[in-house]
């Protein structure tokens, strides 16, 4: 039987306060969902399920090599078993 102790934090409900309105210039910038692969490779995130063998460092090196990236990083290693 599953038992939950403590509380899982509820999603924070936020309102949006509008201070002012102003149109955005379509000539500059681009909504994130319109980005192409090259742009995503410059500033993107992969939610990767790392297998137990390679280290996080190994995986980052592998990804950098695959996509020919100068820079890539990981979100932190687990504590050692």
């Amino acid at each position: 039987m599953r038992v939950l102790l403590g509380t899982k934090p509820p999603a924070i409900e936020r309102e949006v306060y509008i201070k002012d309105e102003e149109p955005t210039d379509p000539r500059y910038g681009k909504p994130p969902d319109k980005r192409g692969v090259e742009e995503l490779l410059q500033a993107g995130i992969i939610n990767l399920d790392k297998p137990a063998g390679p280290t996080s460092h190994d995986v980052v090196a592998w990804i950098k090599k695959m996509f020919n990236l100068k820079k890539a990083g990981h979100g932190g290693t687990l504590e050692p078993l």
Binding site: G36, V37, L40, L41, G44, I45, L48, V59, I63
Partner: peptide, 30 residues
């Protein structure tokens, strides 16, 4: 959540077949 295999497959689709939809669904914007 994807595996290394998923990433590799998506990369190959993009590189070899010019199909970018897989990669675009894997790489999330910042």
């Amino acid at each position: 959540l994807v595996t290394l295999q998923d990433v590799m497959d998506a990369y190959r689709m993009w590189r070899d077949h010019n199909y970018d939809e897989c990669l675009r669904s894997i790489i999330m914007p910042i």
